[in-house]
Design a protein around this nucleic acid. Structure first.
Length: 260
DNA sequence: ATGACGTTTTTCAAACGA
């Protein structure tokens, strides 16, 4: 089973590269974040024509939004309303093989890493707290993917020192993420395949003149599994090339092959 | 240190992203 997760930054604006990804990499399951489209306007037939007719979508106007597309039918889907905000940041499907795939878009958190003065950062921390409680009680064998908007480890960012006060790499967020991982003993698939001592990014700002040369990236996208699935992945690759495709997203897709 | 870019909307400016 090949799974790809990708923050697409508007699915309708990027149909051409979604098609390119599906044709070149043939995912069985494709998890998208920041689709930025209401459910009734989602390009369903576009995915069906590319061989992925089975969709679980959770969208809203303008912002956020997640969608999971599958080649094969899945058993069920559900969404969770985190922080009771009524926004679209999660969709889950249950694969025929038994595992549940949770597709997340965690709040970015704004600029100021202080929950007392920045409501967006407070929201991000509350979201992580709810995910932690949920993880502690989670029984299903699960795969958790998506844009979690935190780069937890030193080599997950281009400069640990320079980013310590930048939202996405601050100690308070990293602590929250490590607590979240601990709550279900979530297994970090990307770091299983790339040693902690090596740089590993999935996002590069649009604002850099030459994003690849400057290479000021961050690992904001993640693939985690329940501990029972540890060792069940045969390949992991950040599809960095896609960051350089025509009219790209600022995130690169992350591909993982499972042995089921 | 700043600003750089890109998408969306009852658009042509402002909010948001990270």
């Amino acid at each position: 089973m090949r799974l790809i997760t990708w923050n697409i930054n508007s699915v309708r604006a990027r149909l051409a590269i979604v098609e390119q990804l599906i044709r070149e990499y043939q995912p069985d399951v494709l998890c998208l974040q920041e689709t930025k489209v209401q459910d009734h306007m989602f390009p369903e037939s576009f995915f069906a024509d590319l061989g992925m007719p089975h969709l679980a979508i959770h969208g809203q106007k303008s912002h956020h939004g997640v969608a999971t597309a599958s080649k094969l039918p899945f058993d069920a889907s559900h969404k969770i309303d985190w922080c009771e905000k009524g926004d679209a940041r999660h969709i889950a499907i249950k694969l025929a093989s038994g595992q549940t795939v949770h597709n997340f878009y965690v709040p970015a958190g704004g600029d100021e890493p202080d929950p007392d003065v920045n409501d967006k950062f407070a929201h991000k921390l509350q979201f992580l707290e709810e995910m932690t409680k949920w993880s502690a009680e989670l029984q299903d064998e699960s795969i958790l993917v998506g844009d979690l908007n935190i780069a937890p480890f030193e080599e997950d960012v281009w400069s640990h020192k320079k980013l310590l006060k930048v939202v996405s790499h601050t100690p308070i967020e990293v602590e929250a993420m490590l607590g979240l991982m601990d709550a279900h003993s979530w297994h970090d698939v990307m770091r299983e395949h790339v040693p902690m001592s090596e740089k590993l990014y999935s996002w590069w700002s649009y604002r850099a003149k030459d994003w690849s040369l400057a290479d000021k990236g961050r690992r904001l996208d993640h693939v985690w599994t329940s501990p029972s699935l540890k060792g069940k992945t045969t390949k992991m690759e950040v599809l960095r090339d896609a960051r350089g495709w025509e009219k790209p997203s600022d995130h690169a897709p992350v591909l993982v092959d499972f042995d089921f």
